[in-house]
Every structure is written in structure tokens, then in C-alpha cells.
Amino acid sequence: MPSPLKIAPTFASAYRTGPIPRRFFLGVVNAAVQFATQMLAITIVFNQTESLGGWSREDLIVLVGVHAIVSGILGMIFSPSISSFLESIRLGTFDFLLTKPVDAQLLASVQSVAPQSTVDGGGSGHYWLWSGTAGAGFGLVVLMFILLLLAGLCMVYSFMLVLASMAFWFVKLDNIMNIFNVMFGNAGTWPITIFPAWLRGMLTFIIPIAFAVTIPAQALTGALTVGNVALTFALAAVFLTASRFFWRFAIRQYTGASA
């Protein structure tokens, strides 16, 4: 196991792209636009109906809040790191990462940090205030929510890692993360339960959006079933293991910059 101290210097990358206060300010502006957009979307939909496939207005605000937390975490660590990783494969600088005495997958996954993205996650606090279910229950419910959220994050991370590992074969892949963001940004803000079966299957097992957003949100809205919880944890383990194997298989394709 690598000690956390060894990874800590990589967090210095947070200072790389500009003064932090200004980036936080821009992060706040971004989050505000995002928040206004999503609230307006929910308002327009619920002007026409009281329930969207069994989800009330408050439930949907919770869901959008969970989506904001997940995108905040992805945007803070995994997206910038995976972008740096993709770039380093193309440039050949991935060589340096391989020579370090820490597992390459770990380093590739946390090498860059964008602290302004914490605003996205923190800003989602607003959603709880707006939502009627805020404070409906603490203790076990919150614990379950956090565990499910972590499991969901594991799955999304695994999926991103597998996508990024394709760069060992295809080299120029910057757009592929874009596609993930479009999928996650569009389909992730709506409950997975309203989609037709074929699309739901895709969004559950191929691109695991359901588990990252809908199921943790259900923990808070009280619509959770035992089967879903078990499935989430089981799938998280499967996704993590599979992506680890895929990474180790893919890294063998890397020929290096000097070879």
C-alpha cells in the first residue's frame, strides 16, 4: 500500500492552472448557472404534472442535488486526472509516472486536482434547502446514502478508467470523456426509472448512471429496495475488479515514448 504522503505532492497540481481565488469565483458562477438551469427545468416540468413517473418535485430536487455532488467529486479529482493521463499517453510523459514507486493506476487517477469543483458539490447544499425532504431523517438513512454514493462513485470511476485505458490503443481520445460528460449531464439529472427498458439497461449496466445518482437519491427519498442495495454493492465490486484487470491488460500495450 502506498502511503498517503507519497500521493500528497500530486495535489500540488492544484496550483498549476492559475490563482485559486479567481477559479473559485468562476466555479461559483458556473454552479449558480447550473443551479438556476436545473431549478427552472424542474419548475417547467412540474407546472404540467405533480409526479414524474412516481417522483415528486421534492424527490427530483434531491436527485439533482445528488447529481451535483457526484459531478463535483468527478470534476474535482477524476476528470482532471484522467485528462492529464490521456494527454501524458499522447505526449509520452506517462513514462515518468510508471517509474514512480506507487501504483500507476492510483497515480493516474488522482494526479490532478481541480479544487474549484468543490463548489459544485458544496453548492448542492442549496438543493437540500429547497427540497422538502431535507432533514426528513438522519442517522441510518444518511449512512446508507453515503455508502451507496461511494459504491456509485466506484462504478463511475471504473467506467471512466476503462474508457481512458482505451488510449493505450487509440492514443488520441480527448473526446471520449466529453461523451461521458454529455451522457452523465443529460441522462443523470433525471430518474432512471422513467426510461424505457432498453435505455434503462444501457444506463445501468453499460454506462452506470443509475447507480451513481438514482439509487443514492432513492435512499433519501425512501424509495429504496433491499434488492437494489445488494445489487449496487455487488456491482460496485464487479466493476472495480473488472476495471483493475482491464487496466493491467491495457497497460501492457503501452510502448513508451522512448521505445
Binding site: I176, N178, I179, V182, N186, A187, W190, F195, L199
Partner: peptide
Amino acid sequence: LWVLGSVMQPLVLIVV
């Protein structure tokens, strides 16, 4: 890939 991205939004909104 970009086209796939353009398909996603209307697809989701039809469902909604």
C-alpha cells in the same frame, strides 16, 4: 462521438 452527444439530449427529453 460529437453526434452521439447531440442525440443524447433530445432522446432524454422525449422520455421526460
